[in-house]
Each structure stands twice: as structure tokens, then as C-alpha cells.
Amino acid sequence: MEIIMAVLAGILFTMGVYNLLQKQLLRIIIGTGLISHGAHLFILTMGELKTGAPPVLTEGVENYTDPLPQALILTSIVISFGVTSLLLVLAYRAAKINGTDNMEQLRGNDYE
């Protein structure tokens, strides 16, 4: 199970990086979204996947699900949710004011 999840996270990362390297701003944002999904899935996998075991640690119970990765993911999801919404607004403003959403034209060589 862990192997499948790791591969899945890998696929998400690959697609994310591919999208990140595109020129269109919206695709880049989708890329960051995919990468963060991959990262979250990865954290979940790292705490070992089990079904049916309670997420508690009482004495004598051998079979339990590690609750920590889930707490970590929850925090991380909220953060990436916030950053993505900010990024969308920022991209909208930037595209509107600069008149293009093509990263090639947003390079900015006017400082030299």
C-alpha cells in the first residue's frame, strides 16, 4: 500500500513540476497545487497506512494508527490553501496590470 501511495505522490510531483515549468500563469498555479497535494499524500504515507486501527496510544495496545502525520497534514493543507488563494488573487492582479499572463513577457529586464 505504501509503495502505491509513494508512486502516486511521485506522479503528482511530476505533473506539478511539469505545470510549474509552463509559461501560462494559471498552469503554474495548478502546478503548485498538485505539488502540495503530492507532499500531503507523502506525509500521510510516511506515518504507515493502516485500516481499522484507532489513532490512540493507550498502554498495552500494539496496533494503532500514528496520529501525528494527520495533525501535520491538516496544518499543511490549511497553509497551502491560504497561499494558493492568495496566489490566485495576486496572479489576477499581476496579469491585469501587466496586460499579460505569459511568464516569458513577465521576465522584466528593465533594471539593468
Binding site: 510549474l20 503548485t32 505539488i35 507532499a39 492568495l86 495576486l90
Partner: peptide, 21 residues
């Protein structure tokens, strides 16, 4: 400013996700 801030946000978002991983 908006143009440069996009790049700033993207590189930091990417490295943060790597940090979590």
C-alpha cells in the same frame, strides 16, 4: 512589483512544499 512578487511567492511556495516533504 506585482510581476516580481509572483516569482517570489512561487519560489517560496515550492521550497516550502519541499520542506514539508
Amino acid at each position: 512589483q506585482l510581476r516580481e512578487s509572483i516569482k517570489y511567492v512561487l519560489i517560496n511556495l515550492f521550497s516550502s512544499m519541499l520542506f514539508v516533504t
